[in-house]
Design a binder for these strands. Structure first.
Lengths: 130, 130, 130, 130
DNA sequence: TTTT
DNA sequence: TTTT
């Protein structure tokens, strides 16, 4: 049975990607992503903000491309699936951690962003619709 | 700055939803979801399978509807955003946990939809958020 | 340059799927999907409703599975990309039409899943594409 | 009955946005979006490419922000729902057209894209996974 | 051309 | 009608 599991994130790397290789020589890159959300207002009408931190794991050529071009701070669009990784720590305790297995990505931002000249991008103040 | 954070899951409840209310009387439902994925084959050509377990949190009328109609095993489609909740445990250690804040949902399910007995599904009256 | 193009639809088949084969014997199924949305209320407070009709095109094993199990009315979850198909009509006029190229699907449906009679749903053996 | 209808697009404006206002003074912006996809290879091993052209319609403050900051060529991320608009043309013929009703958007690209210095972004040669 |  |  295969159910649906799809996640879309746009954020910034929280650290430089680490690239390793499996014994069969497949690249594996891991990095953190920070995703900011506007999340309504509090009782006093002040904008509330929320930051999601997640680890991303990429494989193969995608891992290598990301390791080559991204660093701490790079804005990135990531599509993937959410995974729960489980293991035992040194004391024999069960641990688990959610992470995103990357499926596709896009560099966002580029030399020429093609915004109309002489205007600054607005503060992004759209609330997340949920 | 508001970035993109969207997740789509189709799976089954791992336990009955718990419904609570905030001091201002907003319903809050929490439940677990199990999402199965087929994830290629192993070296011997055997299908590999992966199960994601995540906690889902729903608010307001959606919380109440889910608590009313769903139970352990109910298949459900969930859309939301991934959130990292952080707190301190009793020993003063920082803990954190990923969970999904529900935005929209759909009852699904084939022959056996596993909805609580003897109740009819509601008119679907959630507005599209846009 | 490859940009993002992803669409998620849940609706009902508007007609039985048609299955054809390419010269190289790849299955191609086409069918219509109707997707209903609640879309706010009108001035008088009456719920407004909107129906999207789109054509879906599926290839390969997925085309065959859909043709085998679905018929007019079957509820279906579809993921894919939006495509603009262009051609010339008999008068030499340029015509074009948006349709969805299927990437993944799930059988859904509540009490009545509207699957063709007397057939069991297949083991779901589509691999997650990542 | 409200089904799922969600579309995610990343592309470039094909023309400057047009901004109009409803009688009740709600902004309405329309613009075209071009979305490129890599779509496998042809028989000779040459990369195949596909361009989607769609019209996008935005309302309210979002309409105004887009009209203010975007122009032909601007890269944009768009989330919304697919809609089939139907009307009668001057000859009394039924016409219809798919378009995307915008729900959320992001400017992609910015003054500082934070890519490692002195390297050019790669040719994007990842195939779309479907 | 249209589904529940 | 089309963008990079």
């Amino acid at each position: 049975m295969s159910n649906l599991n799809r996640i879309f994130l746009m954020g910034n790397l929280t650290r430089d990607p680490e690239l390793r290789y499996t014994p069969s020589n497949v690249g594996v890159a891991t990095f953190g992503l920070a995703v900011n959300s506007n999340v309504g207002k509090d009782a006093d009408g002040n904008r509330k903000t929320e930051v999601l931190f997640v680890d991303i794991i990429a494989f193969g050529k995608q891992a290598e491309t990301i390791a080559q071009y991204c660093k701490k701070g790079t804005p990135l669009f990531v599509e993937g699936r959410l995974r729960l990784r489980t293991w035992e720590d040194k004391d024999g305790n069960k641990r688990s951690k959610h992470e995103v297995v990357l499926n596709a990505f896009q560099f966002i931002g580029g030399a020429n962003n093609n915004i109309k000249d002489d205007i600054k991008l607005p503060e992004d103040d759209e609330d997340v619709p949920f």
